[in-house]
């Protein structure tokens, strides 16, 4: 069966002057199945956002392919994509619900906008669709006439979600959807997302810093480091037994209330290598990796299968 999203050797290189190239996303390959939730983790600057913008077709790739249910999207220019029929099939929930809503649009306007543009709906049918979306996302209908500044953080998050699911996407990209929320509100939004996924049969690409949230929500996890995917696998297995030293460091960094569970943690020293014209023979993690053997600076490890459904890019995984 073809996966919903099939990414192959996708790359984005930015020119940074003097013909030097910044390898933001470097030949990344992965797939997302129908109904699957895939987590994307990694530190700032690792290329998560660029990857998301490529998939969402807000940015043109340098090379590689993006197939959505068999349809190639990488050839289409990002500018042309806004008016394309496929636009409705990939939607996004942005990080800060407050910043991503037009301050002059009411909640109803914000939710109606993509429906009007992509589904050519208007009048009474548009109004009832907006109300149905408000009901689905738990936004009280009487708040639909309010502007973003009159809504709480949790309510704005609901508007952002309602707007994204309004055109019935098959793939929903969630970029840190709860980062700006208090824990008590975060729980409600996460549960809403899980419920909507079940009801609407969407697939999720869930980008987050919060590994505890990723663990709760995702079936599978991709770990990114300096433009490369360095590890992937089912969430439970990856958290229980990380194979790549960077994944181990990420998991070690999760705050741990229980002192007995703090043993054997891995702390990273140093700064990441430069993503500008990286040496193709050196592991991207070299220099920060606690292992770092001569082989690591002579031969870049490729992502390979290390166990059933699990991949890692490390010579020693």
């Amino acid at each position: 069966m073809t996966p919903l999203l099939d990414i192959a050797e996708l790359a984005k290189r930015f020119e940074v002057g003097n013909k030097r190239l910044l390898y933001a996303v470097d030949e990344v390959t992965f797939a997302i199945g129908r109904g699957e939730t895939v987590g994307l983790v990694g530190e700032s600057g690792c290329g998560k956002s660029t990857l998301v913008r490529l998939i969402n077709r807000l940015l043109d790739p340098t090379s590689g392919s993006i197939r959505l249910a068999g349809t190639e999207l990488a050839d289409m220019r990002a500018r042309a994509f806004a008016g394309n029929a496929n636009r409705a099939r990939i939607q996004m929930v942005f990080q800060d619900a407050g910043d991503s809503l037009n301050p002059r649009y009411t909640a109803a306007d914000a939710i109606a906008d993509p429906i009007r543009r992509l589904k050519k709906m208007s009048g009474a049918s548009l109004k009832s669709r907006v109300e149905a979306l408000a009901d689905m996302t738990g936004l009280p209908r009487e708040l639909l006439s309010r502007f973003p500044h009159q809504l709480s953080g949790g309510q704005k998050a609901r508007v952002g979600i309602a707007r994204a699911i309004a055109v019935e996407p098959e793939l929903l990209i969630l970029d840190e959807p709860t980062a700006a929320l208090d824990v008590s509100v975060q729980v409600v939004i996460l549960k809403l997302l899980q419920q909507l996924k079940r009801e609407l049969g969407m697939s999720y690409l869930f980008v987050s810093h919060d590994l505890n949230v990723v663990r709760l929500l995702c079936d599978r996890v991709l770990v990114m480091y300096l433009g490369k995917i360095v590890e992937s696998g089912p969430a439970a297995e990856l958290f229980a037994d990380p194979r790549h030293p960077y994944t181990r460091a990420l998991i070690s960094a999760i705050p741990q209330a229980d002192p007995d569970k703090r043993v054997g943690r891995l702390r990273l020293s140093g700064e990441p290598r430069s993503p500008i014209d990286p040496d193709p023979t050196v592991c991207r993690f070299y220099g920060r990796c606690p292992r770092g053997e001569p082989r690591c600076s002579a031969e870049m490890p490729v992502l390979r299968t290390v166990a059933s459904a699990r991949q890692a890019a490390c010579h020693f995984a």
């Binding site: 409600v188 996460l190 549960k191 505890n212 709760l216 929500l217 741990q256 229980d258 569970k261």
Partner: peptide, 15 residues
């Protein structure tokens, strides 16, 4: 309400 080690999403409770 705080996501931690073992809990599933269903076990987390909002305030």
């Amino acid at each position: 309400a705080t996501p931690g080690e073992t809990v599933s999403l269903a076990e987390l409770a909002s305030i």
